[in-house]
C-alpha cells in the first residue's frame, strides 16, 4: 500500500481523488454506492449567496466522448449549505471544499466570509462557470478582474483559497499568475470548455441555453496541457481536472503537475470512477515502486 496522502495549500487529503463541483452534489446520492470517507475530499456543488434556479432545460447534450451542460449553478444558497448540507457532510470523514460563485466581487467576498469558522476545509472560488450571465467566466477570462476577485475573497476568508480557472482564455498562465499574485493558495483547472450542439432536424441548439460547457474524456488532453503550463508558471499547488476517467488519466494529470485531481463527468457514466481511480493508483504505485503518490507530481520529463 502506497502512501496516497497529498497536501494542497496546507490541507492534507488522505488521497488525491476529489469529486469535482457540480458532479457530485453534496455526496448524498453517491453515498448510496460507497462511503464518502474513501474519498480524498469533495468539492461541493457551486454555492451562491442566494438560492438559484439555474437555466431552463434541456441542460444536457451528449457529445463524442463527453457531454455539454448548461445547469447554471442551480443551488439552495449559502444558508442552506451551512444549515443543511454541511452539518451532514462534516460527519463523513472526508475533506470539504466549498465551491463558491458570486455575480459581483463584493458578493464573492461576502460569500467567503459566511464560511469563516465553519467546518469547510478549503474554498474553491469559481471564476469560470460558463453558464451564468454575471460573474462566472466573466471574472475568469480577464486577468485584472480575476486578480481583484481573488484578493477580495482572500481578504475575507480564514480558509485556504483555491481559484478554479476557465480554459476559455488565450493564456491560462496569465490568469493563474494574476490570481497567485493576489493571494490564491492554489489553483484548480480546468472548468468546462464553452461549446455547442445543434439538432439538425429542428435546426435548434440542443441546449435551451444555446451553449454550454464541454466535459468528459474529450477535454482531457486540453486539461493536461493547461495543467502542465500552469504548474510551470506558478509556485502554488495545482489541482488538475478535466476528463479524468481512469487511474491512468489521474497519474498522467499528476505527472503534468497536479498535486491532486478532481473527477467530474466520468462519475455520471460510472459512479464508482473515483473509487476505481484510488484503487488503481494504489496498485500502480506498488507496481512501480512509488512509495508516496506525491513523488510523481510534475515529474513529466518534457522534450
Amino acid at each position: 500500500m502506497a502512501d496516497l496522502r497529498v497536501n494542497v495549500a496546507g490541507v492534507e487529503f488522505k488521497n488525491p481523488v476529489i469529486p469535482a463541483s457540480g458532479a457530485f452534489g453534496y455526496g448524498r446520492e453517491y453515498e448510496q454506492f460507497y462511503p464518502l470517507s474513501k474519498l480524498g475530499g469533495i468539492s461541493v456543488k457551486g454555492t451562491t449567496l442566494h438560492e438559484r434556479q439555474g437555466n431552463p432545460g434541456p441542460r444536457i447534450a451528449e457529445t463524442p466522448a463527453g457531454m455539454l451542460n448548461s445547469v447554471g449553478l442551480q443551488n439552495g444558497g449559502v444558508d442552506k449549505f451551512l444549515n443543511y448540507e454541511l452539518p451532514s457532510l462534516m460527519t463523513k470523514g472526508t475533506r470539504i471544499i466549498a465551491n463558491i460563485a458570486g455575480s459581483t466581487v463584493e458578493e464573492c467576498a461576502e460569500l467567503a466570509g459566511r464560511l469563516n469558522g465553519s467546518a469547510v476545509d478549503m474554498i474553491e472560488l469559481n471564476i469560470s462557470c460558463p453558464n451564468v450571465k454575471q460573474g462566472g467566466a466573466a471574472f475568469g477570462t480577464d486577468c485584472t478582474i480575476a486578480g481583484q476577485v481573488t484578493r477580495a475573497v482572500k481578504d475575507a476568508t480564514d480558509k485556504p483559497l483555491m481559484v478554479k480557472l476557465s480554459p476559455n482564455v488565450t493564456s491560462i498562465t496569465d490568469i493563474a499568475k494574476s490570481v497567485e499574485a493576489n493571494g490564491a493558495d492554489a489553483v484548480s483547472l480546468i472548468n468546462t470548455i464553452l461549446a455547442m450542439r445543434i439538432d439538425i432536424k429542428t435546426r435548434r441548439p440542443i441546449l435551451k441555453n444555446n451553449v454550454g460547457g464541454l466535459s468528459g474524456p474529450a477535454v482531457f488532453p486540453i486539461a493536461v496541457r493547461m495543467v502542465w503550463q500552469v504548474a510551470n508558471a506558478v509556485n502554488i499547488p495545482v489541482v488538475g481536472m478535466g476528463g479524468i476517467s481512469t487511474f491512468e488519466d489521474a497519474i498522467e494529470m499528476m505527472m503534468a503537475g497536479a498535486s491532486a485531481i478532481q473527477i467530474g463527468a466520468a462519475i455520471f457514466s460510472n459512479p464508482y470512477a473515483p473509487i476505481e481511480i484510488i484503487d488503481g493508483m494504489n496498485k500502480w504505485c506498488d507496481q512501480n515502486g512509488v512509495k508516496s503518490i506525491s513523488e510523481i507530481v510534475g515529474t513529466v520529463n518534457p522534450f
Binding site: A23, E29, P58
Partner: peptide
C-alpha cells in the same frame, strides 16, 4: 422524461418546471 446525465440527482441536468408550495422551481 428529459435529457439526463447522472440519473441520481447529483448533476441537476434533467430539469422540469414545477410548482411546489406555491413557488416555481426547477
Amino acid at each position: 422524461e428529459q435529457r439526463m446525465a447522472c440519473g441520481v440527482g447529483a448533476c441537476l441536468g434533467c430539469v422540469c418546471r414545477t410548482v411546489k408550495d406555491g413557488r416555481e422551481i426547477y
